[in-house]
């Protein structure tokens, strides 16, 4: 029996400060053991447990696409003891990495051949970045791709250079918005639900991935429903407190589901049968 509690040793290969307040950094992790590194496979939307020995473990969404092999990216918000310790670490230091965990988005099955709508707010955009990179790497397998991404201010946007690159491509429609007008900002202004209503992607042969703070999700639903989006077309990624990541420890349960194992990606249809405990 393999022991899923033992993390891989991974080295911090690079650190990028993402936001102006430096509360979000992207860590590029490289698994030390070559065999383990080569065997690593994940889906966009999956997460992994990153540990700083002595501090503990945190579940973090994987920000890199499986197509970007060799390393794994994590964009991490500094909030608790583990993430604070991580933010204080430097290039070359060793961390633990356990995963990948959870189901991820069904990019190779249910999403194939569909028009894709990606709606993200704040730092929930990390696994969506993984998804976008994957979709673009396999562009021919999907229909139209619409991205709606909002953050508080331009300085709080993640992956800015990539956002710009994607915007230049003709095969993806980028709608990046900030909550309030800011000096030098020439893009959209307004909350994600408002922009969603304006852009109004058609539900026909389409799926939507919605990730963000609960309040954003709540207000993004009505405009989509209004134009005919069905529950089974909408995918969410939940974030409950997790400890083992293996569907045992009980922390992330939401009714009979373990968010870590049966999720974190769930359709709205699945969510409707569950107690609202997320």
């Amino acid at each position: 029996m393999s022991n899923s509690y033992i993390p891989y040793s991974a080295i911090i290969d690079d650190i990028t400060v993402e936001t102006e307040d430096a509360s979000l950094k992207t860590f590029k992790l490289v698994i030390e053991n070559e065999e383990e590194r080569m065997a690593w496979r994940h889906n966009p939307g999956q997460f992994a447990m990153i540990s700083v020995p002595g501090k503990g473990e945190s579940p973090i969404g994987i920000a890199s696409s499986p197509t970007e092999a060799g390393s794994v990216l994590f964009t991490i918000f500094k909030i608790g003891s583990v993430t604070t310790a991580l933010h204080e670490m430097e290039k070359g230091e060793r961390v633990g990495l356990r995963g990948p965990m959870g189901n991820g988005f069904p990019v190779d099955t249910a999403f194939k051949g569909k028009n894709i709508v990606i709606i993200g707010g704040g730092y929930a955009f990390t696994t969506l970045r993984a998804t976008i990179a994957y979709l673009l790497a396999n562009r021919q397998d999907y229909g139209h791709i619409t991205v709606i991404y909002g953050s508080r201010s331009p300085g709080m946007l993640l992956y800015r250079s990539e956002l710009e690159q994607w915007a230049k491509r003709g095969d993806i429609s980028m709608n990046v918005t900030v909550d309030r007008q800011a000096p030098g900002w020439e893009g959209l202004v307004g909350f994600v639900p408002t922009i969603t209503e304006k852009v109004a992607p058609s539900p026909e042969n389409a799926v939507a991935m919605v990730c963000g703070p609960p309040i954003m999700i709540k207000f993004t639903m009505p405009p989509l429903e209004k134009i005919g989006w069905k529950d089974e077309q909408m995918y969410f990624s939940l974030e409950n407190r997790m400890k083992c990541g293996l569907g045992v420890c009980g922390h992330c349960t939401c009714g009979p589901l373990y968010v870590c194992k049966d999720g974190p990606v769930l359709t709205r249809t699945q969510l409707k049968g569950l107690p609202v405990e997320f």
Partner: peptide, 9 residues
């Protein structure tokens, strides 16, 4: 059977 995981020196 629920548990928590923690690191200790």
């Amino acid at each position: 059977y629920c548990f928590d995981i923690q690191d200790e020196a």
